[in-house]
Amino acid sequence: MYGLKRAENGTAEYIMRVIPHRLCEIIDRYMQMPGLEEIRFRVNRPAQLQFQNKDVILSQYGAITPDEIIAMLHAVCMNSVYAVQNELRMGFVTLPGGIRIGLSGKPIMFSNEIKNLTSIQSFNIRIPHEIKGCAEPFVNTFIDKDLPASSIIASRPGVGKTTFLRDLARCFSNGIGTPRAYKTALADERNELSGSVDAVPMLDVGMRTDVMSLIPKSIAMPMLIRSMSPELMITDELMTEADFNAVSDAVGRGISVIASIHSGDLTAIRNMKWIKAMDERGSRIKLFMLTRAFDRIGLIDEEGSIICGSL
């Protein structure tokens, strides 16, 4: 078990540039309080502040107007919607400081693909939680014969998989708690692991980490293998058949892969077709469940034993 310490990265300034001016003072006050995870804005409804275990609705400040939402969009896009169109299609934009802003609106579909997101209705500003050191006590678990062991980390949403993976990348890349430092690559499809702006990681992902962000994992992973020859590949939220194939392919090429997946059941993951196929091939992937109680996290393996302490 490990106590989480929130890293100070001065995100308030960037957030204040984006939100409606009339709410800056009150939101700034709430941002001083610990545990703020999200700030949500919805057209014709009051702003909502989501803390770890509660939420606060700023109803006394009135509803967010459509004009305020448009102004927010322009501020988020730095007056250049076209420049972040690729991210908008995926439903989020990353600001300097690794602040991720999720958006919802009217997607424009073309040939089964989202071409653009228009009529934005809601914003979800996710406060980045770079918790340096949160994975350090667990690093040993991911090492097998002096090499990183291919592993899948599962959990329900909001437990901290991304934060954990980011710190794991930093540990392996910098050689913290590992036999040596490893060449690490991040296939960061949603730009959440590295929070890159103009391809420069805004969050600490380690000295020897190369990042490919905002493109599908199934494209990023082979590219990184070819161009950067990593020893360890880290990626977030496996979802599609193409993602699973990319992981199998990378492992088949002798690269260790640590990835996360949304799931609450390790047995179901073990029974997935692609995992079974890898087992048959002799490349057994370790499975872990990430759990969190208040500000503490723990890893549970397939046998149900708790690693690094007890819950």
């Binding site: 896009c77 730095m78 007056n79 250049s80 076209y82 420049a83 169109q85 690729n86």
Partner: peptide, 10 residues
């Protein structure tokens, strides 16, 4: 610059 690099206005 907009066509090939998607540079922002700033």
């Amino acid at each position: 610059a907009v066509k090939y690099e998607r540079k922002s206005l700033l």
